[in-house]
Every structure is written in structure tokens, then in C-alpha cells.
């Protein structure tokens, strides 16, 4: 499969348009970066990936001012397709019903960034302890440590320094 073939498969199905960039590493492996303007068209891309017998490798999210950027990383027989979208209301359309391989990736975005994958079949937490509020990665420094005002490193090192013998 070439990136051009993939582009042809989604070209007429995303009315609000998208941007396609191609990058190549020094070893000659190509990757596609697709940025869609409307988040719901992630479903179109996911269906195309499925048609090409591809899989969702993982998904990344990060915070940008008041919105979240979500990037899905797909693989079709050795070619990586990155799909980038933005959400302002902390929800995305879950692609897990289309691509089972996206299951954990979307659940992790939910607990790490408090971005809800609407339509995801599972509600359980994945890794994050229930003692911690979801969305931990939205904060630069986690809230609980900040409230203490002093880091564990400071506490331990103050004890170490008492033992220094000169």
C-alpha cells in the first residue's frame, strides 16, 4: 500500500477537508501525517484503515491551551499513518468499535487527559488508581504533590545532609 492509495481512499469522504503531509526518515521509511479539521471524520479514516487490513498502533494526546490534540498512529503493512485532530470539548468519537486495536489507547486518553472517547465499549479504568483523579497529565505538576509544597527529593535529601561528615 502506498500513501497515495490511502489518500485516494479517503479523498472524497471528508467534506470539511484535511491536510496530508508525508515525511521520510534517513532510512527511507515513509509516514503520512493527516490532520482533519472536524474530529468526527476520524471514523472515516478508521474505516479506511480497516479496509486496508491495518491496525491502530497507539494514540497520543496532549493539551494545547484550552483544547486537546489527539494523534492516532496506524500501521498498514509497515507504513505508519498518523491522524491528528483537535477537540475543544474534551470528547472524541471512539474508533474502537471499528478498530479493536484502539481499545486501550483510547481508554488511556480518557484517564490521562480526561478526554472521553464517546462510544467506547468499556468504562473501566486501565492503569490509573482510583485514588487519583483522571486527567493527571493535564497538569504540569500533579496536584497532590503541589499541595504538599515540598518534594520527596527535598525531604529525603534533608535527611541525607544531616549525615554528611566532613
Amino acid at each position: 500500500m502506498s500513501i497515495e492509495e490511502f489518500n485516494n481512499a479517503i479523498k472524497n469522504k471528508i467534506p470539511s477537508g484535511y491536510e496530508l503531509k508525508e515525511d521520510q526518515d534517513s532510512y527511507g521509511n515513509s509516514q503520512a501525517w493527516i490532520t482533519i479539521r472536524e474530529k468526527k471524520y476520524a471514523l472515516v479514516v478508521a474505516n479506511a484503515i480497516k479496509a486496508f487490513k491495518g491496525r491502530c498502533v497507539v494514540a497520543t494526546a496532549y493539551k494545547e491551551q484550552n483544547s486537546h490534540v489527539v494523534i492516532y498512529h496506524f500501521d498498514i503493512d509497515g507504513v505508519i499513518i498518523n491522524l491528528q485532530l483537535k477537540t475543544n470539548d474534551s470528547t472524541i468519537y471512539s474508533i474502537t468499535p471499528i478498530l479493536k486495536s484502539a481499545d486501550w489507547a483510547e481508554r488511556e486518553i480518557r484517564e490521562m487527559y480526561s478526554v472521553e472517547p464517546v462510544g467506547h465499549p468499556s468504562n473501566d479504568r486501565l492503569f490509573l488508581d482510583y485514588g487519583l483523579a483522571k486527567g493527571v497529565l493535564n497538569e504540569y505538576i500533579s496536584l497532590s504533590k503541589m499541595q504538599m509544597g515540598v518534594s520527596d527529593t527535598d525531604i529525603l535529601w534533608s535527611k541525607v545532609k544531616k549525615e554528611v561528615k566532613l
Binding site: G28, N29, D77
Partner: peptide, 14 residues
């Protein structure tokens, strides 16, 4: 789907 074969990198590509 060994990456060394499907999308070789480093010396596996060279």
C-alpha cells in the same frame, strides 16, 4: 510484522 523487516531502521536498513 517484524519492524526490522517491514520498516527497517539503523543498520538493518543500511
Amino acid at each position: 510484522n517484524d519492524v526490522r523487516v517491514k520498516a527497517p531502521y539503523s543498520l538493518y536498513a543500511i
